[in-house]
């Protein structure tokens, strides 16, 4: 469970990115976070990833208080999260297999376990046949699938997806959303940051709308965010 209480974030330049944000996300939920540029979505993601510290307020993720977490526990905390980005952030000099395996190698997972987990993840995202391909040989949708496989290979409790369909066409976007739903069905909490009203409407899940740092709406499906 994620509990965000009275969360404020003011950057050094004086910009108030988040103002008294209160959000609770239950285990196994699928949540969209919507908002325009500058609404505070990315800041919220950074705070959940513990890339930045809040000015005030509390963030509790699965009983861990991020605001009081010593630095040395941060890597262990991040292993319980999976992250997917709009620009995929794959390593261009590594194959599909190596990109997914990389996530396990760098946290010291034994090679034998990696050899079992990576093919399983590639099956889940439907890329088993392309395990030898390099990122530049794949379509945008396929690259995002690799990024999702990499995010999932360490069995995270929460998957954070920052504009995962931002660089994809409508068809690929819906495929990725379908994949995220499949992952959510396996019990992983999925938080998707997006500004696509179309996707949000089609998915029919909980939507939290942010506007200039405040929670404008957390009323339910569809949201009230106007893309224009």
């Amino acid at each position: 469970m994620i509990e965000i209480t009275d969360l404020n974030k003011v950057y050094k330049a004086g910009t108030r990115a988040l103002k008294n944000v209160n959000i609770t996300i239950e285990d196994g939920e699928f949540v969209f976070i919507m908002g325009r540029s500058g609404s505070g979505k990315s800041t919220l993601m950074k705070l959940l990833l513990k890339e930045t510290e809040p000015t005030s307020g509390r963030i509790i993720v699965n009983d861990m208080d991020l605001t009081r977490m010593p630095r040395r526990y941060v890597p262990k905390y991040r292993r319980r999260l999976g992250v997917v980005f709009q620009d995929f952030r794959l390593l261009k000099d590594k194959t599909v297999y190596e990109n997914v395996a990389f996530a396990q190698r760098v946290i010291g997972v034994p090679i034998r376990t990696i050899r079992e987990n990576v093919p399983e993840m590639l099956r889940l995202v439907g890329l088993s046949s392309k395990y030898k391909s390099y990122p530049n040989e794949l379509s945008g949708g396929e690259q995002q699938r690799v990024a999702i496989a990499r995010a999932l290979v360490n069995s995270p409790e929460i998957l954070l997806a920052d504009e995962p369909t931002g660089n994809l066409d409508a068809h690929n976007s819906m495929e990725i959303m379908g994949l995220l739903e499949k992952i959510n069905d396996r019990g992983t909490t999925v938080i998707v940051v997006t500004h696509s009203q179309e996707i949000v409407s089609q998915m029919g899940r909980r939507v939290i709308t942010l506007d200039r740092g405040i929670v404008l709406d957390d009323s339910g499906e569809g949201g009230i965010y106007d893309e224009n």
Binding site: P75, R78, L81, R89, L91, V106, I107, G108, R150
Partner: peptide, 16 residues
């Protein structure tokens, strides 16, 4: 880029 990904995946400072 690699270091940033490592950091977000949960690699320790030592590993990076």
């Amino acid at each position: 880029d690699e270091n940033k990904i490592m950091r977000l995946i949960g690699a320790t400072g030592f590993m990076i």
